[in-house]
Write a protein that binds this DNA or RNA. Structure first.
Lengths: 210, 210
DNA sequence: TCTCAACTACACTGCACGGTGTAGTGTCGC
DNA sequence: GCGACACTACACCGTGCAGTGTAGTTGAGA
């Protein structure tokens, strides 16, 4: 068992940033550890001293990106759909959901973190022996479903299954926006907004009281 | 410029099948051409004589899978949403859309062709210089949008933008189902059906006349 | 029978690279 | 001053492999 170095937070971060950029750009398998070291401005010996091997470095990047995304999502939910319901009308809910979806999609679709998770995980996707490499989004869906259940309790939504509704919301907004524009640096904010606004409109037609 | 061998259709197919299986399982970069040749039961020399190099083999597999998927989609649309509208009621439309979405999703989510396209393209996703490697799904969306416009003309749907509706339909059904279950061999048909049926229900609530 | 194309089965080349070892340098604390 | 730790800058090893060349075999057609 290798003893990994605690060392310097700045160097650790530099390695992670460099590796993520290169992995994302060229794919994990095509990026040499020499290249990572050069980009991070550290020696390759140091990269191995911190992370032990390439796979461990990859998993660390994945964990960071997933944490970052979950944090973004939780913050956006807390901001736009607060626990203490300030939202009392159907129109207000539509506006709040739009703001949430725009905020989230704007951040995520243009986020190299998201692109990193998406691309890196997808590289493993066809490789069926790697379930541990997937990213758990259950907590975010649960939080949204919880909010939806409350809105339903207040008559602002009509739904049998809050979790299903949360999945539909995600599909019509974030999933669709990211499917349409897979490249962060080219993502057009106006197009994201249009896609997401249309998706929320459809969601409200489906789930608002009639 | 290499002269590629026309040779035998059976051997060509064997190479394509073998390469696709291995590329899908292990990723393009991790599969050796020796392995492809062995699996196809041909010599490596023959693989190179047919395809010239690894990338050309990869692109051939991608083109085959995309053709196959487009064919599947077109057939499902023609079967469930025929041009000559036998569908005259909203309930009938809901049933037809459900049948289409279930048929498509059942086939696609469990299809190694789809998984191949998804995984192989996604491997390139973070690599922004490769737009030519993406799969064009516009024609399928156009066909669905065309049908939707007709149904709207007959009062079976209310929609401003048939293309947007087609995207929403796709997001609530196929995109969601494939996102939930990314591994073909493990895909549970019952779960696909549930997801898709729920998605069509939401779609109809959003777009059927009120 | 001869020729040609397809194919096999190797061998080979040049290169890449994950990972490891080591000597030397600099800094810090005792 | 000494020792420990972090780090650099190489060198090295063993392995893998894309791609190419070549000799030999086989089958089909002229």
């Amino acid at each position: 068992m290798k003893t990994l170095r605690a060392g310097s937070p700045a160097k650790r971060a530099a390695i992670l940033v460099a590796a993520r950029e290169l992995f994302l750009r060229d794919g994990v398998d095509r990026v040499s550890m020499d290249a990572v070291a050069a980009r991070a401005a550290v020696s390759k010996r140091t990269v191995y001293d911190y992370f032990g091997d390439k796979r461990t470095l990859f998993l660390a990047i994945l964990a960071d990106a997933a944490d970052s995304l979950n944090g973004i999502a939780r913050r956006a939910i807390d901001e736009h759909l607060p626990d203490d319901p300030a939202i009392t009308t159907v129109a207000g809910l539509g506006e709040a959901l739009t703001a949430l979806a725009v905020d989230l999609s704007m951040t995520v679709v243009r986020s190299t973190d998201y692109a990193a998770v998406f691309a890196l995980v997808a590289q493993q996707r066809g490789q069926e022996g790697s379930p541990g490499d997937d990213v758990d989004t259950l907590a975010v869906h649960d939080a949204v479903a919880d909010r939806f259940a409350r809105f339903a309790g207040h008559g602002l939504l009509e739904l049998d299954d809050p979790r299903e509704a949360a999945h539909h919301f995600g599909a019509l907004t974030l999933l669709l926006a990211s499917d349409e524009q897979p490249f962060p640096s080219r993502a057009d904010p106006e197009r994201i907004r249009r896609t997401v606004t249309g998706g929320v409109r459809a969601f409200m037609r489906a789930y608002a009281p009639r």
